[in-house]
Design a protein around this nucleic acid. Structure first.
Lengths: 379, 379
DNA sequence: TCCGGCATCCAAACCGCTTTGGATTTAACT
DNA sequence: AGTTAAATCCAAAGCGGTTTGGATGCCGGA
């Protein structure tokens, strides 16, 4: 309005500065909080007597802006507490800046603690890169629908596939709807065409079994996870391979497959220990079940690590630490949280450059000696 | 273009139907999948020779649309696989249709399994109501920032406050930035001005203590959660109240407060049991730690439920079932998953009508007799 | 002096949906 | 028959950003 734009501008700005600092900086911080909610790009650019274009570019680091202007913009943005509305930005850029995790209700019952630990790891990566993590808990028969919704409604730029089954199919759907994904675990038969992060389940259980065999154990029980899951199949394979190599056959009478709860471990161990030919060692797929096994051993008046040995897989869950100089359980350990971090990184890579070739990360589990193993008694 | 719009339209539509069914319905499903991704409202309305307004209204159930038109729209939408872009809808409506959960890294270590179970419950409610759940894992010193971002960038319509501390402050921030929230637990001193869902921690532990006292136990150990958390304080209060009522004083020598891990239970129980005046009963804040206590008891050559009693709080975690006719542990039980469902419902209510008065839900824990309690030995 | 090139900045289009404020047609009522 | 009200539908204006395609001013080189 006035021809002296430059002057007026500076004056106004200084006034505003003063205004904010004195009036709002002090006891009315809450008022500022409420006000700052309303500051959008238009308002900010008006205040600066700049176009939205320039302000946007200044804030997003584009080169077409002078250093001085950029500084001014940054300061004013800070002052007014401006932050871009994510929905608007998402709409404009076409990227939702979010990664989805679909959890069917039934599956997450079983994956419970391991899943959370993975999520925690992935979440760290996401927030480091400015991504949101959205989790959908859906009824089992809505799983496919959930993925489709994510794609068509553009809710997320990619998803993590949890707990691949032995006869997995989700990867086909995801390719069909063109939704980037990373698998936690492996999809049998699709290893080379999908990006995944997994630990070496077969090898880990093979090594664990060998250790028990070396200790003289011949009758080894396997308390596995649900064997319609890929990871459980691989573990079983490792177990059987190790036995076979020494000319031993696995005895299905002392092999179980189920959700890895504590009572599962206890009940089955109890039953086996009371049988005619009880196992002298247990190979268990989860710390939680292993705790149950230990309880059963105790209830039978036996001692873990002396009368009966246990090796368990340890996902390094934070609420079930199995560390210290000599951990409670001898275990094959692999941090599932770390897997989450890495899987998230791979996924963000794919989202950033979708043409990228599938890659994979094979984590090795450590075999760590704890208190729960010893030579077979009476050897 | 042609004056025979009606006719042309129908013909075209039938052609499309035919086209889709024969060509895409079969082996080219994936192509349809990719195509359907691109169908937006404009395209859909063009196809229908209707305005976007009408189509939008038809799909969203507004009354200004004839039944016939609505049907036509619905069919075509289904056929083309149309689903509204959530970012666009969010921008237009101003509601993000998402609920946020902020988890500082340090805290979620300790809340781990309980947190997940709560999340699972809340997630069910969200998806039932078309809301997304977004989880932010943040460094501890970025927590406040995370909440501010959610508000100013409009990432979520509300948040759940997890694990309120004894000296909680988040509710002030959230009121300041005008972000609706529901507390899981209670904020001391702000009970009436916040909406919350909590169980009756004090009462539950009082009842549990009374049961032990009735069984003749006089020396009762308390393995509590971290007592800078509100829930743990209340539990301690219940414990102390019950003792006081019988003229007994709590002995801090057998009281502990920490993250509720398994070794925490085992190590502390072990130490106490080996002391000069060991407790005859343990009151424990978590199943996980209780398992540790049971392990310690076993290692001391004692029997749980006979030589030493345990009562634990049981959050009804799905991977740690403590059910059956006679559960392993005598416990105070309250389903944290249910709490999650209800908290989510309350939050969605608030989001829908923000002027609503604060309300609260006080869940009662059941006291359930299991195998881990018995009369004090030698009574 | 004239021109091309660079550094800055801007107006306007666009992302895909909702919603306001009519316009048009049809049915209903004096 | 004339007027109203109801039923339908639409054009256009947002929502709050990003991005395209210039405009403007200033400089050195010919």
């Amino acid at each position: 309005m006035s021809p002296h734009f430059g002057l007026v501008k500076r004056t106004t700005r200084e006034l505003m500065l003063h205004f904010n600092n004195s009036l709002f900086g002090g006891r009315f911080q809450s008022v500022l909080g409420i006000m700052s909610k309303g500051v959008n790009l238009r308002e900010l650019s008006n205040r600066l007597k700049l176009s939205q274009t320039t302000v946007s570019r200044a804030l997003n680091g584009y080169p077409e802006v002078s250093a001085e202007t950029r500084k001014r913009v940054a300061e004013m943005a800070e002052e007014l507490g401006y932050a871009p509305n994510s929905q608007a930005r998402r709409l404009a850029t076409g990227r939702s800046m979010a990664i989805g995790h679909v959890i069917p209700r039934s599956i997450h019952e079983m994956m419970n603690p391991i899943f959370l630990e993975f999520i925690a790891g992935a979440g760290e990566t996401y927030s480091k890169h400015g991504y949101d993590m959205i989790i959908s808990v859906v009824e089992d028969d809505h799983e496919e629908d959930a993925y489709r919704q994510i794609a068509t409604r553009k809710k997320a730029d990619g998803v993590i596939v949890h707990g691949p089954a032995a006869d997995e199919h989700r990867h086909k759907l995801l390719k069909e709807i063109n939704l980037p994904f990373v698998v936690h675990g492996r999809i049998p038969g699709a290893e080379s065409e999908t990006t995944w992060v997994d630990m070496n389940n077969r090898r880990a259980f093979e090594r664990a079994t060998n250790l028990l065999l070396d200790l003289g154990h011949k009758r080894i029980a396997l308390l596995n996870g649900l064997e319609h899951m890929d990871f459980a199949r691989r573990r079983r394979k490792g177990f059987e391979d190790a036995l076979a190599e020494r000319g031993l056959a696995a005895d299905t009478a002392i092999m179980r497959s189920s959700d890895m709860t504590e009572p599962y471990g206890c009940d089955n161990a109890m039953e086996m220990l009371k049988s005619d030919s009880p196992p002298t060692a247990f190979l268990v797929s989860s710390m939680i079940s292993a705790i149950g096994v230990a309880r059963a051993i105790g209830q039978c008046g036996l001692e873990t690590g002396k009368d009966v040995s246990i090796i368990t897989h340890d996902d390094a869950l934070s609420f079930l630490p199995n560390s210290g100089e000599v951990p409670i359980f001898t275990c094959t350990r692999s941090s599932v949280r770390y897997a989450g971090q890495r899987a998230a990184e791979l996924l963000l890579d794919i989202v950033a450059s979708p043409q990228r070739e599938p890659s994979s990360l094979h984590l090795d589990a450590e075999l760590i000696i704890g208190q729960s193993t010893g030579p077979v008694p009476g050897r």
